[in-house]
Amino acid sequence: MMEGFQEQLWVLLLGSLLGLELIGKVPPTLHTPLMSGANAISGITMLAALTLITRAGESPLLLSLGSVSLGFALFNVVGGFLVTDRMLTMFRSGRKRSGGGQ
């Protein structure tokens, strides 16, 4: 168990360092979409919720807890990605129209 935990700590460390590097210089235009997109990714807890359901066996308490948790996570994921896409579509259409007008 300790070995697995150590490995997980390595994963945590490297993931954090990667996250710090990924967002270097972001134009302010993209701050809101970036926040919203990153927020959607944090809904990855849906995997944990799925695991909870698959390991719940017959227990109705665990099944419903997992199901509700999955619902909230998917609300975050689906809503987050779609709303980000909606914002980004606007930037694109703005560019097209200005290009066509010139």
């Binding site: 460390l13 993931g15 954090s16 996250g19 990924l22 970036l34 990714i41 944090s42």
Partner: peptide, 10 residues
């Protein structure tokens, strides 16, 4: 862990 850490740091 990776995805959470990336979002947390970013």
């Amino acid at each position: 862990i990776v995805a959470g850490a990336m979002v947390g740091a970013a």
